[in-house]
Amino acid sequence: MCRVCGRALSLPERGRRPVYCSRACQAKAYRARRTPAPVASGPSERRTEIARVVWQIAAEQGLDAVSMRSVAAAAGVSVRVVQYHFGTKHQLLVDSLELLHRTNEQLAAGRIQADLTDPKALLGAILEEFLPLDAHRRLSLRALVGYYARSLADPALAAVFLTGDRALEDFVALILRYAEEQGLLRPGIHLASTADLLVAGVTGLGLDVVHGTRTARDVREIIARQLDQLFRDATGLPAKVATRR
């Protein structure tokens, strides 16, 4: 096979085996050797662009439709460009999933104001991140469904899902503990199990919105009612004295 274009080569009767199918491929290989390879410095814009195409195909057609050729065609690049940035199809899937998680975290951090002075509102904002309230979150949820199913038989994909496992549940439990210390929670609430139920419940409800069996408004009302059951009625709480820091 030609080292540049992959075409089949005919073996000569005598002499050395050819490694290129034409002088043009030989010239391309020569220029590639003379050109210094770019130094990798984290995910490039091109890598992110290609990963976004993977998310789009996975969300619209399923993960089985993701291939090096389909991604290259949708991204408007050659297969060699995809191979350069990701190597193999499997690595393309794994790296794209990691980039999706990282992108979701960055977008969520930009939307959520971590204000512990109002833990109820903070919890509501965190839980709403699981709902498809915009185009990216809709795409992300649909893509993640396919990824999660594949991860059950793929250790490398499973490792991405399990990185920082229970970090979100622990963070929700931490907010609940703060609210309890401030006297904002109703008595008798088990913090850890409540955090688990909140995260697991809103994850399933977000998928209901994707399927169209519930609306985002319905799920927001469910979240609000659940938080009302956890927190004391603000009207019955003593007013806090403002302090200057």
Score class of each variant (00 low, 15 high):
231 F>G: 04
213 T>R: 15
190 H>D: 14
45 E>R: 15
138 R>M: 13
200 A>I: 03
221 E>C: 06
146 G>K: 05
106 Q>L: 14
36 P>N: 08
93 L>D: 05
50 I>W: 01
84 Y>A: 12
96 S>W: 01
86 F>C: 05
60 E>G: 04
94 V>H: 03
96 S>K: 03
53 V>Q: 08
72 A>D: 07
209 V>C: 15
67 S>F: 04
221 E>N: 11
196 D>F: 09
44 S>D: 07
226 Q>W: 10
70 S>K: 09
215 T>V: 05
26 Q>H: 11
90 H>N: 13
119 P>L: 08
6 G>S: 08
203 T>H: 11
130 F>H: 15
145 V>S: 11
11 L>P: 00
229 Q>Y: 12
2 C>P: 02
2 C>S: 06
172 V>A: 03
187 P>Y: 01
43 P>L: 09
41 S>K: 12
94 V>D: 03
42 G>L: 08
108 A>L: 10
162 L>S: 12
109 A>M: 11
158 A>H: 10
46 R>I: 07
86 F>S: 05
121 A>I: 02
87 G>F: 03
124 G>M: 07
198 L>Y: 01
7 R>M: 09
118 D>C: 04
82 V>W: 02
151 S>P: 03
82 V>P: 00
182 Q>H: 09
190 H>K: 11
168 L>T: 09
132 P>W: 07
121 A>T: 11
196 D>G: 06
60 E>C: 04
230 L>A: 06
74 A>D: 08
92 L>E: 04
14 R>T: 14
239 A>E: 14
237 L>D: 08
58 A>L: 05
48 T>F: 10
31 R>P: 00
128 E>Y: 03
186 R>E: 09
56 Q>V: 01
73 A>D: 13
130 F>Q: 12
183 G>C: 06
12 P>W: 04
138 R>F: 06
117 T>R: 15
112 I>W: 01
50 I>A: 04
58 A>F: 01
78 S>N: 11
188 G>H: 04
28 K>D: 09
110 G>A: 11
98 E>P: 00
134 D>L: 09
20 Y>H: 14
209 V>Y: 02
226 Q>C: 13
9 L>D: 08
230 L>I: 02
203 T>Y: 08
94 V>F: 01
69 R>K: 13
119 P>H: 05
52 R>G: 11
24 A>K: 14
28 K>F: 05
146 G>V: 05
209 V>K: 00
137 R>Y: 05
212 G>E: 07
29 A>T: 01
104 N>Y: 13
233 D>V: 04
233 D>A: 10
149 A>T: 12
174 L>P: 00
128 E>S: 13
79 V>D: 10
78 S>K: 10
178 Y>E: 12
96 S>T: 01
57 I>P: 00
123 L>A: 06
208 D>C: 12
5 C>L: 06
196 D>H: 13
59 A>Y: 02
155 P>F: 06
145 V>K: 14
19 V>Q: 14
140 S>I: 02
130 F>Y: 15
56 Q>K: 12
